[in-house]
Amino acid sequence: MTLTKRIIPCLDVANGRVVKGLHFESIKDAGDPVLLAEKYSREGADELVFLDITASQEQRETIRSLVSKVAQVIDIPFTVGGGVKTLQHARDILLCGADKVAINTGAVKNPEIITELMNLFGKQCVVVAIDAKRNYDYAKGKNIFSEDSKKFWFEVFIYGGKTGTGIDAIEWAKKVQQLGAGEILLTSIDKDGTKDGYDIILTKAIVETVSTPVIASGGCGEPLHMLEVFKKTDVDAALAASIFHYETHSVDRVKEYLKENNVDVRL
């Protein structure tokens, strides 16, 4: 046996509650973050990810207290992200008990923060979140992919998927690895909230580009989608939110299903 594939429930948090949206928009309430964290941990989740989707200045205190509450009830690793723009903010989150901090917009705006964080806390704490979206406008110098005879490249988006940056996601992944990212949390904006399955083309491309672990995110609607992303790519972990929140599937059942289909998971 060797390293297992990780199953990671994600909790999008707004105003201290877990919420779920479609395409980064229209959100609904999905429960108490601490209770959900405890439940997922008990059911055998390998890690948890918390994303503060409001990420406003006022929310920072809420998030800090949430992080320390969560750290007291669970004994598996967890990552916290959303609106982390400064070294001080990242430091706060880690010192409150999070194991890793995810940075997205903050890293695009100020890539040095990745290296600074690595120097302070070590690589293992630094997760760079990349939100990527297919861009069908031809652009020179981009990594071009095609599906159903349409050509596109993957553009990095920031500010919760609202703003394009013109940056090629493949190139950005290479760069963040060089700067010191310990892991990449890769979200497909096209797939997020669709329950249509992960973006296999995107995931495969990033996994083959970097040597750091990669977490696939966006689009998981059923356990089959996790099986698919593990069979078709060498991704290390699959993240999902809604399939776990609404009691549609429990973490342990999903892992049993993966195991039956010859994916190495921790059971």
Binding site: T2, L3, T4, G182
Partner: peptide, 10 residues
């Protein structure tokens, strides 16, 4: 190998 070695192993 992928570095870091990150995750659950036995």
């Amino acid at each position: 190998f992928k570095i870091p070695h990150m995750g659950w192993n036995n």
